[in-house]
Design a protein around this nucleic acid. Sequence first.
DNA 1: TGTAAAATGTGGTTATAACCACATACTTAT
DNA 2: ATAAGTATGTGGTTATAACCACATTTTACA
Lengths: 223, 223
Amino acid sequence: MDKKKLKKTVVFRGMEDDELDAALAALGAAERKYAKDEVILHAGSTTDMMGLVLEGSVRIESNDIWGNRTILSHIAPGQVFAETYAIVENAALLVDAVANRESKVLMLGIGSAGILGHDASLWRLKLTANMLSISMQKNLMLSGRSFHTSPKSIRGRVMAYLSSVSLQTGSDEFDIPFDRQQLADYLNVERTALSKEIGKMKQDGMLTARKNHFRILKSETSL
Amino acid sequence: MDKKKLKKTVVFRGMEDDELDAALAALGAAERKYAKDEVILHAGSTTDMMGLVLEGSVRIESNDIWGNRTILSHIAPGQVFAETYAIVENAALLVDAVANRESKVLMLGIGSAGILGHDASLWRLKLTANMLSISMQKNLMLSGRSFHTSPKSIRGRVMAYLSSVSLQTGSDEFDIPFDRQQLADYLNVERTALSKEIGKMKQDGMLTARKNHFRILKSETSL
DNA sequence: TGTAAAATGTGGTTATAACCACATACTTAT
DNA sequence: ATAAGTATGTGGTTATAACCACATTTTACA
């Protein structure tokens, strides 16, 4: 295991060599190899270990009861998966973690007695804080997306999304980090329908848009 | 401040009296009163403090640029809000936190130098671990909901949801914790449309359902 | 046990978004 | 500058879900 690289990951960030050693030992770190398409963690099972991808790539996928497969995300080297399931007790995985190609994964036992409890060593605090950072970052993205996709109409979603960007930038004129197709995917709508709706919103005097540059027009009547 | 009660909250759970004192001091804990409908945290701003509701109730709401208001959740005594924004740096609030009625809130400075960094005291470890637990719990709910509402068709959402429940219970026959209206709200669809679709799924031989009791029927052809 | 109230289901209509087939604009490389 | 490729917009059609108005079933309780 390459300590230099490990110390750069979000999980072990900020640790000294000796702390890293202590952490790896306490977590029962085990490097494992998986063949392409080998299942690392099975949906329906529980785990007290999370995975840190060292080489290759891991995909998170769902296979519903009737056999439909959905790929939810790809985990790149340096990133972790299943961390939530490892820490929250009795939470059955809703997804499979599968090696996308031949991959090396570091399995870390952070569940139950892993992180929590016991002594107040510095590595433990750093590790917990790092995990907290990962979790909250994810949280922010998830709640944002949930908020932006909960309106039923395309217009509602566009408004929710643009409002958020406007708040973040503190301005009524801004660039968004998506092209039309990406925005459509993010908002979970069809691209051409999105284009149409944005067109209508322009006509209705709500905004101007050109490519990924938007300007919000607050109608005087809304005061 | 009632220490007995504080020690029962998710935030301070597991702490001894002296640890609680140290934590409260280090976090600059400040009890504040808010009148009904007073805004505690403004959308668009940033905060390094989270709120712990002591008395009353806090609602999280969104007001988009065009003036539409959406109430997203209610925070009860013993629960926290804005914790994500407090910890993730430079994250502008996308929502307002508003006192739902006259309320007492304990503001806790957990941002930046608050939790992370510094010494490895036991209270710090416990607090961080508690926050991690809160965050991951939320995470699990958010990602579940996101997964269940991402299919565009009602049938797709029902399948995604029932698959998850089936995995969690490890059985193809189970009760769900929702009535029809609640399930419709959760899946973000209209109730009668949901009833219709469940009816069709019965006809198509995918499942049987009676009230909140479901049984999944895997068709032989899917093998 | 009868009645009111709540929950669930169903038919019909309408609004909306997906879908398809292109037209137009914008970008890039030669 | 032109051609090819990519991104974006638009019209028309169809599928789907929201919506409305009730019918039916289940539950609560007087």
